[in-house]
């Protein structure tokens, strides 16, 4: 019984590491830039399919593909922010249209993927998919371990960037006080564009991790909407360490739920977390 518990907790932590990577983009876009990008999961899935194509056609390692796709997704993110800025933010129109826009993006991306790839599950091949590292009685499947370790690495890098560099600090500050940024002769729109580019760029890697962990079909992203916003809100908006803690927590609870109640209940856990956080502590664990 103890073994079962420990294994569930460990695999929950591994899962949580991966969730952190998926949530990173939202933590930046929603938490720091105040752009409610509900289409983020769709970009993650897009990243998965990029990894899939390059893996199948060129035999490239999915993680390598994720890294190579970073600049492409960065530019894509900048372009999307530019459209959203020109059409909504600059006009000062209500958040309703912005939300509807991102919902449209989410939907169109999913339908396009269905049109091109169909609804079959796709998977990638790499040396770390399959074998399991065993320490004592604890199983550490490599396909979970690799994304988890890399996610945490990505996390640390971004945290360093956001807290140590000039641009990074500007990104973290932009939604709090755009006027102050202007006074420092920083263009808030440019900063938000860079920030949103980064946010979408993380989706390229997160997508590669996703398809390493599980086979992917276009509508898988929907399950992640509840999860990532739950993590983001739970951790406290805009707090990267909070996001990591929130992700680990959700991972562990989901893993325990899967072990004891069956995997089909797992998607409900995130929603429960989200509602409970919103109802009892809307500022989140490490929120301001």
């Amino acid at each position: 019984m103890l073994e079962l518990y420990l294994n569930a907790i460990v695999s929950g932590l591994l899962l949580g590491g991966f969730y952190a990577a998926v949530t990173l983009g939202i933590a930046i876009a929603f938490g720091m830039l105040d752009v409610v990008n509900i289409a983020h999961p769709a970009f993650v899935i897009l990243g998965s399919y990029v990894a899939y194509i390059c893996n199948i056609k060129l035999g490239l390692d999915p993680v390598l593909v994720g890294l190579l796709a970073l600049p492409v997704f960065y530019v894509l993110g900048q372009a999307i922010y530019q459209v959203s800025y020109l059409s909504f933010e600059r006009r000062g129109s209500d958040s309703l249209r912005g939300l509807a826009f991102f919902f449209g993006l989410l939907f169109v991306t999913e339908v396009l993927l269905i049109l091109v790839f169909g609804v079959d599950y796709r998977y990638v091949e790499a040396w770390y998919i399959g074998p399991t590292l065993r320490i004592g009685f604890i199983d550490l499947p490599w396909r979970m371990l690799v994304p988890c370790v890399l996610s945490i690495l990505l996390f640390l890098l971004l945290q360093l960037f956001l807290s140590r560099t000039y641009t990074g600090r500007a990104i973290a500050a932009v939604s709090q006080d755009p006027t102050a940024l202007r006074l420092l002769s920083i263009d808030p729109v440019r900063i938000k564009r860079i920030g949103f580019g980064l946010s979408i760029a993380t989706a390229a890697l997160a997508g590669a991790f996703l398809i390493i962990i599980q086979p992917v079909e276009p509508s898988v992203g929907r399950e992640y909407i509840g999860r990532i916003f739950a993590i983001c809100v739970l951790g406290g908006m805009g707090s990267l360490p909070g996001t990591l803690i929130g992700a680990m927590l959700l991972g562990v609870v989901e893993s325990l739920t899967t072990t004891f109640f069956g995997p089909s209940w797992a998607p409900a856990v995130g929603f429960g977390f989200l509602l409970a956080t919103l109802a009892f502590k809307p500022s989140g664990l490490l929120g301001r």
Partner: peptide
């Protein structure tokens, strides 16, 4: 549960609601 906060949270909660009800 959600409307006392910013409107965005309500939207996000409704987005997740369909996934959860479907799970149920």
């Amino acid at each position: 549960l959600t409307l006392r906060l910013r409107g965005v949270f309500f939207s996000i909660a409704t987005l997740a609601l369909s996934v959860v009800l479907q799970t149920l």
